[in-house]
Design a protein around this nucleic acid. Sequence first.
DNA 1: ACGCTTATTGCAATCCGTCGCATCTAGCAC
DNA 2: GTGCTAGATGCGACGGATTGCAATAAGCGT
Lengths: 150, 150
Amino acid sequence: MPLPQTEIPGRLQAYFSERGIRMTQQRRAILQVMETASKHLDAAQILRKAKKIDPSVDRSTVYRTLKLLKRNGLIDELDLMHIHGEGHYYERKVNRDHIHMACLRCGKIMEFVSDIFENLKQQVEKDCRFKIMVSRLEIGGYCTACRAQQ
Amino acid sequence: MPLPQTEIPGRLQAYFSERGIRMTQQRRAILQVMETASKHLDAAQILRKAKKIDPSVDRSTVYRTLKLLKRNGLIDELDLMHIHGEGHYYERKVNRDHIHMACLRCGKIMEFVSDIFENLKQQVEKDCRFKIMVSRLEIGGYCTACRAQQ
DNA sequence: ACGCTTATTGCAATCCGTCGCATCTAGCAC
DNA sequence: GTGCTAGATGCGACGGATTGCAATAAGCGT
């Protein structure tokens, strides 16, 4: 029983079919959630939102799809230093890697883009002769507001 | 029923008693495991090794102790880019932060220390006015040997 | 449009990590 | 050494994430 086909960017369709990955209704629903998410969803939130689009989506399909997307570099997985428990968070991969900073006191998440980070990765690739596919820098500490109140 | 008291470094004894953290038999067993581990144990391995020293050690005590040690900056928690599944790994904290690189093909874990990493952290502290307490840079990619064989 | 093949799914069982609570014990005072 | 008390433990129960397997459906050839 076909559901209304939700709009998925052509680049993803192409990426999938090139390597024989099937575009199922469930994946389409999950992808739509990831594409339209403002930020940092955890698996439970993704499941809930995906079920609204296609109620048949199962928990295990969400986890399997997230793993697939992660393996293919289409999303990033974060744990935000486990400030809010052990869960993991997911966000669409953007062109430039960014650093995540989590305030250990107020829980706020900040992002930061840095040329030095790019330099560091280049150094690793060169000095270790290591081809970087994915990288993640997460920092825990205290934000400006919380430092003042300590 | 007292077990043979295993040797725990004085610095840890001092650190604990200063802040009213009790040195129990179970913690002593777990600490001994961490101190003598060559590297990167996961929770199940720590439990198994600790049980050999003190069979009464329970799973939840291991998790609680790891959390305690992490909170106090005595160990680092890694996920090594989830190459071997979702589990977490633990290692004794050493003075200088190091980068972990995980080969996505052979699974080998490499470490790297870099001044640029230190510079990057300084930049974050300055530009974001953020006090860093803990940081973790993990990289997934392909090591020299595996690059050659692709 | 129809069938075929195999990737993908849903379900149930399982595993891993956490939590509440009653019990125990480390560390201190005497 | 003995007793006291709060911190720590073990146990059982729970929720989140994973996995094996039979059933389903995507995508291709015709």
